[in-house]
C-alpha cells in the first residue's frame, strides 16, 4: 500500500474556499488527487506552495482583481488624485498651510494671478525655454538624420552625444554656472574665437540670463529627442526609399515628401514633451540663480508662494492655472498638427 492510497482523513482534506498547503509526505513523492482540475501536471508543485485550484476561476478572478488593484489604487488616489481635488479646493481659500480653518475667498486668488505682473508675467521667462525647446527639436532631428545616413563611427558619435541627458541635473547646472562666470570659460572661448564683442554677464544681464538658462536645458535634453528621432528613422521601411530613388527623387525631395511626413507623429510626441517641459521649467532657474526675479518661472513662483510665503491658497490657484495652460497648449498643438494631416 503506497502513500498515495492512504485514505484521507477529513482533517487534511482541503476545505472548499481555502488555499491548500501541499504537505511534504514521507516515502515516494506523490500528489493526491483532490479535485478534477488538480491533476498530475501539477507534480511540480513544491513544498510550501499555496495552491488554490479548487477555487473556481470565477471566484479567483474577483479575488485577483480586488487584491491586485487594492494597493496600487490606494497609492494612486492618496498621492495623485486626492491631492488634485484638494488643490482645486485650496485654490478658492486663503489657506496658509498650517491653520485648521479655511477661509473661502472665491475667485480672488485667480484674479490676483492675472492682476499681479510678478506672477503671471513670469511666463515671459518660460518663453525662452519654449524657443529653446523648438530649436532643440530641430537640432536633434538634424543630428538624427545625419546619424541615420551612411557615416563612419556612428555609434561613437551617438554615444558621446547622448551623455548630457544622463548627467544629474544639479551637476549640469553647476558646470554651466561655472562656464558662465565673468571671465569664465565661455568668455575665454569667445575671446579665442575672436568673438569677444559677444561677451556679456551671462547670468547678470537681465536681457540675456533666461537665454543662458534655456541653453542649459537645450544642452541637457536634445539627446533625448535625438534618440527618439533616430529610433523612428531606423524603423521606417527601406523599400520606400528604394522606390523613391528609382523614381529619381533628390535628397531634399526624399526628406520633404517621405521622411518628414512619416515622422509626423514622432515630431508631435517630441514637441508635446518639450512644450510641457518648457511650461514647467523649474530646476535650472532654481539651482542656477535661486529663481531670482529676472529668472523666476511660473513654477518657481508657485513653489515660492507656497513654501516661502505660506500662501497655499494662491499657490494652488497658480498650479491650477498652469495645468489649464498646459492642457490648452497641448490641445492647440494636437489640433494644428492633426488638422494638417487631414488636409493633406
Amino acid at each position: 500500500m503506497g502513500a498515495c492510497d492512504t485514505p484521507q482523513s477529513p482533517m487534511n482534506r482541503p476545505q472548499a474556499g481555502h488555499p491548500v498547503r501541499v504537505q511534504p509526505v514521507g516515502g515516494p513523492p506523490c500528489i493526491q488527487r483532490v479535485s478534477p482540475v488538480w491533476d498530475d501536471t501539477l507534480s511540480e508543485a513544491k513544498e510550501g506552495d499555496v495552491v488554490s485550484l479548487h477555487w473556481s476561476y470565477r471566484t479567483q478572478k474577483a479575488v485577483l482583481i480586488i487584491s491586485f488593484l487594492l494597493i496600487p489604487l490606494a497609492l494612486l488616489v492618496t498621492f495623485s488624485i486626492y491631492p488634485f481635488f484638494k488643490l482645486i479646493y485650496y485654490s478658492f481659500t486663503s489657506w496658509d498651510g498650517l491653520s485648521p480653518t479655511f477661509t473661502w475667498v472665491g475667485f480672488n486668488n485667480y484674479v490676483q494671478i492675472f492682476k499681479n505682473p510678478a506672477l503671471f508675467g513670469a511666463f515671459a521667462h518660460n518663453f525662452s525655454y519654449f524657443v529653446g525647446g523648438i530649436v532643440q527639436n530641430i537640432f536633434a532631428l538634424i543630428l538624427a538624420l545625419v546619424l541615420n545616413s551612411r557615416i563612419r563611427a556612428r555609434n561613437l558619435f551617438r554615444t558621446i552625444l547622448f551623455v548630457p541627458y544622463i548627467l544629474n541635473s544639479v551637476a549640469v547646472v553647476y558646470i554651466f554656472k561655472f562656464m558662465y562666470l565673468d571671465n569664465g570659460a565661455l568668455d575665454i572661448l569667445l575671446n579665442h574665437l575672436g568673438l569677444s564683442h559677444l561677451e556679456t554677464s551671462w547670468l547678470g544681464n537681465d536681457a540675456v540670463v533666461n537665454w543662458s538658462l534655456a541653453f542649459v536645458s537645450f544642452w541637457q535634453y536634445f539627446p533625448f529627442n535625438m534618440v527618439i528621432y533616430l529610433a523612428a528613422l531606423q524603423s521606417l521601411p527601406q523599400d520606400m526609399y528604394e522606390a523613391a530613388s528609382l523614381d529619381g527623387a533628390s535628397r531634399w525631395q526624399t526628406l520633404w515628401f517621405i521622411t518628414l511626413p512619416n515622422l509626423k507623429s514622432i515630431i508631435q510626441i517630441n514637441l508635446l514633451l518639450t512644450v510641457s517641459g518648457a511650461l514647467e521649467a523649474f530646476n535650472i532657474p532654481f539651482v542656477m540663480t535661486n529663481a531670482s526675479p529676472p529668472t523666476a518661472t511660473f513654477l518657481t513662483n508657485t513653489m515660492n508662494v507656497a513654501f516661502t510665503f505660506h500662501n497655499f491658497g494662491l499657490a494652488s490657484a497658480m498650479a491650477i492655472v498652469l495645468l489649464i495652460i498646459v492642457f490648452i497648449v497641448i490641445s492647440i498643438q494636437q489640433w494644428l498638427l492633426g488638422g494638417r494631416r487631414e488636409a493633406a
Partner: peptide, 10 residues
Amino acid sequence: ITTQVATFGI
C-alpha cells in the same frame, strides 16, 4: 510637480 502644494500636506 504641479500638485505638490497639496501633496505636501498629505
